[in-house]
Design a protein around this nucleic acid. Structure first.
Lengths: 348, 348
DNA sequence: CTGAAAGCGCTAACAT
DNA sequence: ATGTTAGCGCTTTCAG
């Protein structure tokens, strides 16, 4: 029992165009006809077929968001912000998991949803510049996250090096000197420079503290279990860091769990700083000091980048000019894992 | 530079239909023409317009998932599972936030994405039976979560009462008698029965333990902050529970934070059981005993319900018969918050 | 095995 | 203010 404009038109005794006018709230319609048409719409239970509208208009109002996986709260929180922001612009979000696999990232990039998505927001992990360079799909693409490519796409990310330096600076300020970095990526794939690791190195160097290679712990992934494994490995290797700067909050949380099991006190024995400001970090037995990227700003910039490109055309033709590197704000939130219980309201 | 079947057909010197045959991997095409057409496709960079295909076929391969919000890790983890399961069935997931607001839940239900989504998975919070009874949209709908309606829609949820009873049983078994329930919903909206609360009452009654109303703490929401507030209120009211059964893990985690601040030891002073088995609960300083619903099973059942309805027609016509109540498995995972550090491997 | 033509339901010119 | 008509790009009879 699918009912179309034509059915409504017949029922109301008007043309298809008039019904369309009513449906689309076109102004110049006599109240009388409008009423008549509306009655027919209600009687038949008519609903516009959006697919047909999309085909005709060449737009769908759908943007895709591709993240490694929602099991990671950072991406979940970010995805939530994107969904909300998109809704404000009358867009809906289609969600894809890349699992951080290059082939999946490549696939979403190559327009496998051609013409059903108006644009794509991608957080790449494994994608290489050449993968992107060969992209032919014309839907606007905006990249988010730590990886940078020298390509004509908008890119949104905080200044990771500066953020990492701020975290390490804080640890130095509270008197720590043996500061471990947890979360370097194994170099199996000859991964490009790791900005947060570079920040760690840079800040230590600037302060005349030796960046001890033995204090760099590598991980296989970025989850809590990886943090636990990395921390255990570090301790088992006989290292005695007095502070840990973790690639992200999940790794920090996994590391803290291992410390708790081994009787190490946070922050007295080991101070900990994470990255991402997950809500989770605010509710542990010891709240987590962290670098807080402005997730809502990231979501807003990403969505507005897409919407803007859709409105103004591709970078080359856009009034504002070419591709942009946007840097949302970040803040270092000092909590118990570095400054102890006394500092400020506990749940902030 | 959008290129259509027609363009490819001209380039290859064949008809539109032949190109279509090649694109859709129709078998009976001469290798020669196939090759010719493929060459044209590559030369022109042709990609099928899926919107047009959808209009023609009346299917889009998109299913919508509407949850309160992704900031809640339970829904994030569930959404992740749905995305993965849907992908296995060649479906993509469109994500909606309802914020637990009745009007938003109503909206997604009423086919505001008419004909662009093939089906809808909804976790309602505030929706009433009458809202659903008036639904006219014909896309298959499947409900998930605690709320039950006596309506012809598939519903997927664990046996919440049995699960709650198992949790309370466990607390009784380890000798607790003053067991608080954290997370009853304020009755402003004359909310329907709260299955987990009912389970708490039932198990206490079955064991001859008085269900003390004063040990029921109400919440405004289901986040960590709500758990913290509820626990603080309970303690401030002079209550001294020796155990807490929380509506979900987030509330349990918020409550544990408050206990830590006030010097109450878990589980020695207060044992805690949560609900949902969030990964987060496995990594606190004290790991959290919890009721673990089989999230992947929920996701699978939900997706397969939709896919099945799409294949077999609506419940009335389906071979298997009418709407189904599906109950995935659950398990009680005993961890440190009830049985202390000694029990088993710490990170399980 | 391939071609011609109809039509999915809608919007946008162009008429009237 | 309303009607007519031509596609958007594809799949699908139906011929050949």
């Amino acid at each position: 029992m699918r009912v179309s404009l034509k059915d409504v038109a017949e029922q109301a005794g008007v043309s298809i165009k008039t019904v369309s006018n009513v449906v689309n709230k076109y102004e110049h319609v006599t109240p009388a006809t409008r009423e008549k048409v509306q009655a027919a719409i209600d009687a038949l239970g008519y609903r516009p077929n959006l697919t047909a509208r999309h085909l005709r208009k060449g737009r769908t109002g759908i943007i895709a968001l591709a993240v490694p996986e929602l099991g990671n709260p950072y991406f979940a929180e970010l995805a939530g912000a994107v969904v909300d922001t998109a809704a404000e612009h009358d867009y809906t979000v289609l969600l894809d998991h890349t699992q951080g696999r290059r082939e999946r990232e490549l696939l979403v990039t190559q327009g496998f949803r051609a013409r059903v998505i108006d644009g794509l927001i991608l957080n790449p992990l494994e994608l290489e510049a050449e993968d992107l360079a060969s992209r032919t799909d014309e839907a606007p693409l905006v990249l988010i996250g730590e990886r940078r490519y020298d390509l004509p796409y908008d890119h949104i990310a905080i200044d990771n090096i500066a953020a990492a330096r701020a975290a390490v600076r804080h640890l130095l300020d509270i008197g720590r000197r043996r500061i471990a970095f947890l979360g370097a990526r194994g170099d199996r794939h000859s991964h490009p420079a790791h900005l947060r690791l570079l920040g760690w190195q840079a800040e230590l160097a600037a302060s005349g503290v030796t960046a001890d290679e033995a204090l760099i712990a590598r991980v296989e992934g970025w989850d809590r279990a990886d943090g636990a494994t990395a921390m255990a490995a570090l301790l088992d290797a006989g290292q005695h860091p007095d502070a840990v700067f973790a690639y992200n909050d999940l790794i920090a949380i996994g590391a803290m769990r291992v410390m708790a099991e081994r009787g190490l006190r946070v922050p007295q024995d080991v101070a900990v700083v994470g990255f991402d400001d997950l809500t989770e970090g605010r509710y542990g037995a010891v709240t987590l000091t962290t670098v807080a990227p402005d997730k809502r700003a990231i979501a807003r910039m990403a969505v507005e980048s897409i919407v803007g490109r859709l409105t103004d055309g591709p970078p080359e033709e856009a009034p504002g000019g070419g591709p942009r590197q946007l840097q949302p704000e970040f803040a270092l939130l000092e909590r118990e894992s570095t400054v102890g219980r006394s500092a400020g309201p506990p749940l902030d």
